[in-house]
Computed example of a mutant assay.
Amino acid sequence: MNRYFIFFDQLVAKKISPKFLRASSRLRFICALLCLTLSCFSYAGTDQPTGGSYGLALDPVPTVNFVFLTPANTQQQQAKDIIQHSSILATIKQLSQTRYIFAPSLNIVFGSAKGPNFDSTKGQIQIPYQYIDQLLEHVSKTGAYPTQQQRYQATTDALLLTLLHEIGHAYILDRAIPVLGNSETTVDNFVVILLLNDIHRGDDIAINASRLFSTQALNNSNLRNNTFIQQHSLSQQRYQHILCLVYGSNPARYQRLFDSFPLAQRQQQQRQCNGIYSTTYQGWLYYLDN
């Protein structure tokens, strides 16, 4: 682009007619404007091969924002650290660029006084630090996770499921998706489809987090008094439905998932779950791919 500017400067030096110079100045301005515009696009995107030639590919913009309120004590600071040192934020952000795209952006507020819940009036998801503390305590009391790293991983897995659940409610409202049945089952489907198709270890997260949230697991836990748990605690029927979706996504891989079930129930699940998963997957992809 600089060689064009040099050319125009040479014209000026040779005292070309004022009329021509006026036209040249206008052309120079247009060139400069075009250069600026292209540089802005280049900054925002990357050059990638497109159909055998190089084209401009704009980087997708995240459509969720994370807000961290100031922790009030050491325990809340620990909860904040657990979130920030996990892969949760990167996962939620990436999915907001490709799967659930919000306009305007959806705010996720950590450290709120209420929640977890989706506040439709404020357009935000609220997650108290206390809830994360309760999750960690609940995970520790199960005795299934001997190391601190395993307990933190189980806690963040359960938190990811919680966040996806609330994002599901927000997404249904944002896209005006019709819910012809139980809204919690609809959101469960949304969560499991994302876990199985877009998230590393999503199958383990779906199975393990659902067990942590089952009514039986929460019977002797302080977590059972949380408002979110009281509203969303997994009944045995919902838990089996989640297992059914996981099994149906790959029957050969998850063939032992129903081994603890009575024979007749196990056979019924194995017959039905492939079709249930296929229908659920196709239904949600209609929205998530558009």
Score class of each variant (00 low, 15 high):
residue 196 L to C: 09
residue 154 A to L: 05
residue 178 P to Q: 05
residue 159 L to H: 11
residue 207 I to M: 14
residue 182 N to L: 03
residue 93 K to H: 08
residue 193 I to K: 04
residue 147 T to Y: 07
residue 138 H to L: 01
residue 164 L to W: 13
residue 185 T to N: 02
residue 96 S to L: 08
residue 118 F to L: 07
residue 116 P to Y: 11
residue 196 L to G: 06
residue 107 N to E: 12
residue 214 S to A: 08
residue 130 Q to A: 13
residue 124 Q to I: 07
residue 156 T to C: 07
residue 205 I to K: 02
residue 179 V to N: 03
residue 189 N to P: 06
residue 190 F to T: 09
residue 141 K to M: 13
residue 169 H to R: 07
residue 150 Q to C: 05
residue 178 P to G: 08
residue 158 A to F: 02
residue 117 N to L: 15
residue 204 D to I: 11
residue 168 G to V: 03
residue 134 Q to N: 13
residue 122 K to D: 14
residue 203 D to M: 07
residue 176 A to C: 08
residue 122 K to T: 14
residue 132 I to N: 02
residue 148 Q to T: 12
residue 163 L to G: 01
residue 174 D to Q: 14
residue 130 Q to I: 09
residue 144 A to V: 01
residue 153 Q to M: 07
residue 188 D to I: 03
residue 150 Q to G: 04
residue 208 N to P: 01
residue 195 L to Q: 08
residue 136 L to N: 08
residue 195 L to S: 00
residue 165 H to T: 15
residue 135 L to W: 00
residue 140 S to K: 12
residue 100 Y to S: 12
residue 100 Y to L: 01
residue 108 I to E: 14
residue 134 Q to P: 03
residue 104 P to R: 07
residue 143 G to M: 03
residue 151 R to H: 08
residue 190 F to W: 01
residue 160 L to E: 01
residue 165 H to P: 11
residue 143 G to S: 09
residue 92 I to V: 14
